[in-house]
Write a protein that binds this DNA or RNA. Sequence first.
DNA 1: GCGACTATACCGGCCGGACGGTTAAGTGGC
DNA 2: GCCACTTAACCGTCCGGCCGGTATAGTCGC
Lengths: 164, 164
Amino acid sequence: MRREALLDAAEELLDEQGAQGLTLAAVAERAGVSKGGLLYHFASKQSLISGMIERLIAEFDALVEAQRQDTYTKAYLDATIAAITAGRLKRWAVVTGASGDPHLLAPLREAMERWHSQGIGAELDPEASRVVRLACGGLWEIAAHCPGVSTDHDALRRRLLALL
Amino acid sequence: MRREALLDAAEELLDEQGAQGLTLAAVAERAGVSKGGLLYHFASKQSLISGMIERLIAEFDALVEAQRQDTYTKAYLDATIAAITAGRLKRWAVVTGASGDPHLLAPLREAMERWHSQGIGAELDPEASRVVRLACGGLWEIAAHCPGVSTDHDALRRRLLALL
DNA sequence: GCGACTATACCGGCCGGACGGTTAAGTGGC
DNA sequence: GCCACTTAACCGTCCGGCCGGTATAGTCGC
């Protein structure tokens, strides 16, 4: 699908060059399409960015679903680790793309609220669940910004599961 | 100091309107200065952003120092909570400003690596320390993006301290 | 089975505005 | 009268988006 290729190109550009690398011309060129072709699939730069955000949310939700754990928190933890180690789902890169206009982040905010609150009452220890989910947020941050901080994901995962 | 006022103005604009609201003209106007006056203090937009980042790091380091806890992790936790509840130190807003050019984030990355690794070997339980520091990252994220998720900071703080 | 017509996908040149940065000319404190 | 500081006008570039055009494929009447 051309549309997916364009979203991929945009994501890569954001990851490599930051928000100012995300120009319509650059995205089109990387995807092997003309600018007009890009505008055909995404009527504006905003809609391109929204497309990235929505895909990001959908992919992560699918990843959580695929974990088949017995609680949402455990599934969320495993999905986070899976996404980070796979290098896919560059949450941070996509966010930088939307940093120009806070409006564009609204869907992501909504999703994040869900990720932090969904099923938290049904957990054995809701407070511990909150801690684990917060730690997942920290993991994202580290993965995005600090390649220098080595993290033993296996050990960390065991430790967090022990909390639940 | 005019310089500080300019940094304040830039921070406020980022917080309210995102990266594309951060133009030299807008910053100058909000600070009650002309564009030339802004350029006198900061030779370029880059140096303005770098100024924000360096101030942010220095302020947070000072806040950690001021906590006077017996371990770095505890001080870091309390500083994080203090910064969030005070509404100061808009870490995220400043980061969005630098999202255009990944280069500008280098000092912040360095600081974050420090925040996550400093004195971690000297802690009673380094692994628990790591968890607490990661959770602090999650707290930042929540505070920046999800006003809807209510967090009982007191309870959370007790819980995290109990881990250490 | 052929001509008229439409839909989908894509092209690329152009323009207008916005924005970062420059400069020349002040202004006031000391 | 110098120097830190401020100002307003100006310039060049870059980028988002518009628009007229092309090509391929499908549809329908007849």
